[in-house]
């Protein structure tokens, strides 16, 4: 029995699984926003996107 539990490793509770899933979705959304932002600014600035002050 102990060996079996050891093989399973750490078993997450339902609450832990749920909060991890929510955090993962939030990270995915944040990365998505970042991608859209960089894409939109590239379109808006065109070739000038590489021309920045300083």
């Amino acid at each position: 029995m102990d060996d079996k539990r050891e093989q399973q490793g750490i078993v997450l509770t339902e609450a832990q699984k749920r909060s991890r899933r929510h955090r993962s979705i939030a990270i995915a959304l944040a990365l998505g926003v970042l991608v859209v932002l960089f894409f939109a600014v590239t379109i808006v600035k065109g070739p000038a996107v590489l021309n920045r002050p300083m």
């Binding site: 750490i10 509770t13 832990q16 909060s19 929510h22 955090r23 939030a26």
Partner: peptide, 13 residues
């Protein structure tokens, strides 16, 4: 010691 598994939700962040 057993590792701490976070239960923090998006609202906490």
């Amino acid at each position: 010691a057993a590792p701490r598994i976070s239960e923090a939700d998006v609202g906490d962040y």
